[in-house]
Design a protein around this nucleic acid. Structure first.
Lengths: 217, 217
DNA sequence: CCAATTTAGTAAACCTTGTTTACTTACGCA
DNA sequence: TGCGTAAGTAAACAAGGTTTACTAAATTGG
């Protein structure tokens, strides 16, 4: 543990400090309201110092998103214990909406901001793992539901199904975040819209109970 | 028609010139990429001149949005001839998606940008008119469908239904616009997603054919 | 231990962009 | 003709992302 190690440790500590301050400030005030100068002031370093750790503001944001995506994916994965894939999906939808409601600025950064394409291959490696990637989780639920014959015909492509389901919920949250104060729309309560959308998704996807039920006759 | 009238005419002509240049540039390059200086240069006036017609950049944008919303609403109203309210809704969904696909920057401005609350009452007056307000159009379709018993139980609130339906489609288009180049998601074709969403909406909302059909037995 | 080099950090400047101030010009009108 | 208002401009200001040029500290090779 020579001086080199300590320096590297200090370096990482400062990097983390920048990330933590950035996350906090962004969460509180949103992307545009937080300036590099603000972050620098917050951590008591000069603005230039941030650029020793991140190429630019976008790079910093992207790193925050990366971490948040990962944490979000592992959060989703905790629902893996629910046996019924459609119930699992329902729970995932509730969790997704709760996250967006609790951290609208993070949601905005993660799902409502166009990020220039990244080419670094290492950024891709954690994907497709349902343990860490929320999209893969949803896709897996729908794939399983389809294989068990629980879906209507026409939903055999798990990617298409996952994208439609994701988009449906995203729409509710995106409209809430951008238009929540719009006086033109007589908004129903957000919870009602989220529940309504989940209801729409489930009744739109789920196959009708085959003949009815064995009890009736 | 003295000189005063001519001056007023010139004034309005310049205002329109600014709006036209702004619309064109915004449509091509998006909100952030277009600067007041760009617009000024485009119309061959000094930047200051724009401020004689619009309070600030936001005011200019808002006026563009206002016009576009109105045009969009009247476009929707052309579908009023379709008798079946659910089919009418389906056609409106297709039209909505086509607009977003053709003018993604306008769509972004109109539906994906948070606009400070406006207090001018005259900006509200054209609302609730299904002839000019796309939201009111969708709401009316769903209200009619409900009254004709075409919807499942639980969709008696036309505002909630309209907001859920709108959000579902919006989600597809918003994700397309912000994440279309995201390498993390194996996107299905946009048309497939739009059609899938419309299918999901219709099968999620429409009441099942009552006992089956009189033909079967 | 000392000098050279690398590294971390800073102050000040640069550049772009929205916006305003202070001035000029042109025109209608008495 | 001269006055006042309206249209227009150049230049400046302010904010914010980013860079340049410099300083100081620490590591390292001899």
């Amino acid at each position: 543990m020579g001086p080199m190690e300590r320096r590297e440790r200090d370096r990482l500590a400062l990097r983390r400090k920048i990330l933590d301050a950035g996350r906090r400030l962004f969460a509180e005030q949103g992307y545009e309201a937080v300036t590099m100068r603000t972050i620098a002031h917050e951590i008591e370093y000069s603005p230039r110092t941030i650029y020793l750790h991140f190429k630019d503001k976008d790079d910093l944001i992207r790193e925050l998103c990366r971490q948040d995506f990962h944490a979000f994916g592992t959060e989703m994965a905790k629902l893996a214990g629910i046996a019924d894939p459609i119930e699992r999906l329902r729970a995932a939808g509730k969790g997704y909406a709760a996250f967006a409601q609790q951290f609208p600025n993070h949601y905005q950064l993660m799902f409502m901001t166009r990020k220039p394409v990244v080419d670094r291959p290492e950024d891709l490696e954690w994907h497709d793992d349902p343990e860490a990637d929320a999209y893969a989780f949803v896709r897996a639920c729908l794939s399983e539901a389809h294989d068990k014959g629980m879906l209507r015909t026409g939903w055999s492509d798990p990617d298409l199904a996952a994208q439609v389901v994701w988009a449906a919920l995203h729409g509710v949250l995106a409209l809430h975040i951008t238009h929540r104060e719009d006086p033109f729309i007589p908004w129903a309560a957000l919870d009602a819209r989220v529940d309504g959308m989940i209801r729409l998704i489930v009744s739109g996807l789920r196959a009708e109970p085959p003949p009815v039920a064995p009890k009736k006759s």
